[in-house]
């Protein structure tokens, strides 16, 4: 029983010395703080007309203003909230579905596996964004929650596949056999024996799903199927394109939202490489 704490301490030791993991954490952390604290500091709404129209970054409006005199910085920090929200909800839902399907298919095997595998493969080949387009186009009122719900429902398959493969390899281990022989229920075996043994893997899967959700939500928003109320980074891109920010040279309008998404998602990916090195001794540089 001493093996687990030692392994954990070892992982922590490498985690604290892993540049990629730390750099990723810092970047994500900074944006998270901006998303949480920003709207509390700015005392007007993201869509309020507060300044002169189309003015470049200045001491008063650090990120400049839109064609209509909205503060780009205010939109940015509120948009960050939407981005984190859609990532956590959409990525989280996809992770939950992926885990349920993956664990069940991998642990049960047989016919259950066949059927789940078939469903997984079907959802896998369906191009998610176009399915989301159809669904969202028919929705009169769209919200971030609803968007995250549908993203979660369409982006779980690769995670389910990966978790299934992992479960499959854990299934025949001694400690699982022992639990099974002593009459422990399936759900409990998965929760107590299998899931903890791949927790690092599950966490990394969630990070990738988070990043994927953010990117796909941004695409939806950009096409014009974003939330009907509020702001998001994708909607900012959509508005800047719709009101010809490009042709008018209003770079301060379209650079921050894209840079924000890129930085958050890129930092998450780099974090994942770092985590992989922490948990996978083969990849550590000696």
């Amino acid at each position: 029983m001493t093996a687990v704490p030692t392994a954990r301490r070892e992982a922590l030791h490498f985690a604290l010395r892993n540049g990629k993991l730390l750099a990723g954490l810092v970047v994500v952390g900074v944006f998270l703080i901006a998303a949480v604290a920003g709207p509390l500091i700015i005392d007007y709404g993201p869509n309020d007309y507060v300044g002169p129209a189309a003015s470049p970054p200045s001491g008063e409006f650090w990120f400049g203003t839109t064609t209509f005199g909205q503060d780009v910085l205010a939109q940015f920090v509120y948009g960050l909230r939407a981005t984190f929200l859609v990532g956590i909800l959409g990525g989280g839902l996809a992770a939950v579905i992926g885990m349920v399907v993956g664990f069940t298919a991998g642990y049960r095997g047989g016919l259950v596996d066949e059927v789940l595998n078939m469903i997984t493969n079907i959802v896998l080949v369906l191009p998610a964004l176009v399915v989301l387009l159809i669904i969202n186009a028919y929705l009169g009122v769209r919200s971030i929650g609803l968007q995250a719900l549908f993203i979660g429902l369409t982006s779980w398959p690769w995670a389910a596949r990966a978790i299934r493969a992992q479960t499959f390899s854990l299934r025949s281990r001694d400690f699982v056999d022992l639990a099974r022989l002593s009459g422990v229920r399936t759900a409990k075996i998965i929760r107590r024996e299998i899931a903890p043994n791949m927790s690092s893997y599950l966490f990394m899967t969630f990070i990738l799903l988070f990043g994927g959700s953010v990117l796909i939500a941004a695409s939806l928003d950009f096409i014009g199927l974003g939330p009907t109320e509020g702001v998001s980074l994708g909607l900012m891109l959509n508005n800047s394109a719709r009101w010809s920010a490009l042709q008018l040279g209003m770079w301060w309008w379209f650079i921050p939202p894209g840079a924000g998404i890129t930085a958050i998602v890129g930092a998450l990916y780099v974090m994942n490489v770092g985590l992989d090195e922490v948990f996978n001794p083969k990849l550590r540089e000696m």
Partner: peptide, 25 residues
Amino acid sequence: LPVGYVLTATPYMWLAILLAWALGI
């Protein structure tokens, strides 16, 4: 590694906007 991760994390439309702005406008 870093360049690759930045590229793959970039939303397609944003890179398109940047290129259009820089090389086009």
